[in-house]
Design a protein around this nucleic acid. Structure first.
Length: 196
DNA sequence: AGCGTGATCTTT
DNA sequence: AAGATCACGCTG
C-alpha cells in the first residue's frame, strides 16, 4: 500500500483520529530492522478549544511542535517514565494532535519483545507508553515527520463504522466528558481502560 | 489500590 | 523558588 502524504494529516483532529485507525505505522531502523504496527486506538487533542490539550492556552516550549505542519511527530515525556507519541494535525500554526494509544504488531515483533521484556503479543503495544518503548521512540524523535525513510504510515482501506468504538479519553481530568477516544471494536491490542 | 519518577506549568 | 499536576505501567 502507498504511503500517506501530508494532505492526509491536514484534517480536523477528531476526523483524523478516526481515519488513522487501521493504518500501518512504520519505523525503519539501521541494520534492516523494520517495525510495523497497525493503529488500533487513538485520542484527539483539539488545540485551543480543548482544555485537556497541551496547546489550549497557546504555545509553550513543550507544545510548540503541535503548531507545526501536519504529519509531524509530537513526542513528550510523561509521569517521569514514559514517552507518548502523537501525530500533529491541521494546518501549520493551528495546534492539534492525535495521541496514538495502541497498535497491533505487524512486523518486528521479536525486536519489540526484547525491548518490552515480554513475549505476549497483545502486551507489546497495548498502551501509549508501551508502544513507544516497543518502537524505541523517545524525545529525540520529537519534531521528526512522517515523510522520511525512518518514519511513515502506510495506507489501508477505511474501516466500516460498525467496527469503530468511541469512549471518553483515558487518564485526563479536564474535559473528561468528551467522547474523543476511538478504537477498533473487539481488537485484543486495544489498551485496558484504567481505573475499572 | 498504590506508587515511582521527573519535566512542565502555575502560583507565590 | 516551591508546589501541583500529569494523555502511564507495574506490582501486589
Amino acid at each position: 500500500m502507498e504511503r500517506l502524504e501530508q494532505q492526509f494529516y491536514e484534517l480536523p483532529t477528531l476526523e483524523l483520529s478516526e481515519k488513522l485507525l487501521g493504518k500501518i505505522f512504520v519505523r525503519l531502523l539501521p541494520g534492516n530492522i523494520a517495525l510495523k504496527g497497525r493503529i488500533v486506538e487513538t485520542e484527539a487533542y483539539c488545540g485551543r478549544e480543548d482544555e485537556a490539550c497541551h496547546a489550549w492556552r497557546g504555545k509553550t516550549s513543550r507544545n510548540r511542535i503541535m503548531f507545526q505542519a501536519p504529519g509531524t511527530l509530537y513526542v513528550y515525556f510523561s509521569y517521569g517514565c514514559h514517552h507518548l507519541l502523537n501525530i500533529v494535525t491541521e494546518a501549520e500554526n493551528t495546534p492539534g494532535a492525535v495521541l496514538i494509544r495502541a497498535m497491533e504488531p505487524v512486523e518486528g515483533a521479536l525486536f519489540m519483545q526484547e525491548r518490552r521484556g515480554t513475549s505476549l503479543k497483545t502486551n507489546l503495544m497495548s498502551g501509549p507508553g508501551k508502544l513507544t518503548k516497543a518502537l524505541a521512540i523517545d524525545c529525540s524523535c520529537n519534531g521528526k515527520n512522517l515523510f522520511s525513510e525512518e518514519f511513515f504510515v502506510e495506507n489501508a482501506p477505511p474501516l466500516p463504522n460498525r467496527m469503530i468504538g468511541t469512549s471518553t479519553r483515558v487518564g485526563i481530568s479536564k474535559s473528561r466528558e468528551l467522547p474523543w477516544r476511538k478504537f477498533i471494536l473487539n481488537n485484543p491490542h486495544v489498551s485496558k481502560v484504567r481505573g475499572v
